[in-house]
Design a protein around this nucleic acid. Sequence first.
DNA 1: CTCATGTGTATGCATTTGCATTTATATACA
DNA 2: TGTATATAAATGCAAATGCATACACATGAG
Lengths: 148, 148
Amino acid sequence: MHPPAPSDAIVRAWVRLERAHRAAQSTVEMRLKQANLPPLAWYDALLELERADPAGLRPFELQKEMLFAQYNLSRLVDRLEAAGHVLRSASEEDGRGQVLTITRSGRALRQRMWPVYAAAIEAAVGSHLSETDALTLGELLGRLYAKP
Amino acid sequence: MHPPAPSDAIVRAWVRLERAHRAAQSTVEMRLKQANLPPLAWYDALLELERADPAGLRPFELQKEMLFAQYNLSRLVDRLEAAGHVLRSASEEDGRGQVLTITRSGRALRQRMWPVYAAAIEAAVGSHLSETDALTLGELLGRLYAKP
DNA sequence: CTCATGTGTATGCATTTGCATTTATATACA
DNA sequence: TGTATATAAATGCAAATGCATACACATGAG
């Protein structure tokens, strides 16, 4: 067959990936909003930066980690910086580049977000799966974007 | 524990759900765009409407099927209607409501999209999983948004 | 060294999304 | 029946996203 045709099982997995993601994501975003907290993406970025501390991360590294589009990351960082959660400074090794580091306020925000986020994950995902299921699911999903 | 804490496996599954979805989705959207075709959401909507033919679907039914936000669906339908792929008509049973039906042109578009979409699904998902994996993955993901 | 090409990041503009609210009809119940 | 509440759908406005491009610096070839 010329255009490689995915099997029914593959199509079903893809459709459910969309649906499951939409359902879970909307639960999580809704709960964050209800708690007057910023969106999920802020948490993800802050977490990566906290892990990378104190060296910080280059925007393109963060971008690859988060699988974000370049212009989206650039603007996400704009907002984080404007809110005082991230510091942008010029890279010393690369004249084009920057280094991002998390600020004290960024750390604090991430910590405040966690309890709400955690409860949302539990509601959206945890409550539907056994421990074994979760391991299997994580493993299979990981294959969809592994680098090799 | 008061704020129900998700296990590590659950958190990992959630994070990978986000990442895998982002990766797959961007592949699919990119390929559609490269082929000068409209976004994924158009396909999904057209497919549901085609399945529901000839009775059509109420917007809120389509919305639930696709797990779309109400205002997003309303505007998606605006675009589909403006492009001539969908017909909006007043519901006879419910004075508030409408009935959506797919047009000939909508059908044709869905058909033109399928080969590109299929190849994209295969690339984004199929090429990473065995048949058995796909079945398992689909099953697990289905649990995340099942109604009961 | 110089030029062609590649990489890191930002940005103007159009489109889409999110939020809050509005409008209209339906339904339940006092 | 009349009124409160719920449901279907649209919409104005603000924010985020996508796209194409711009700009600055890096790197490699000759």
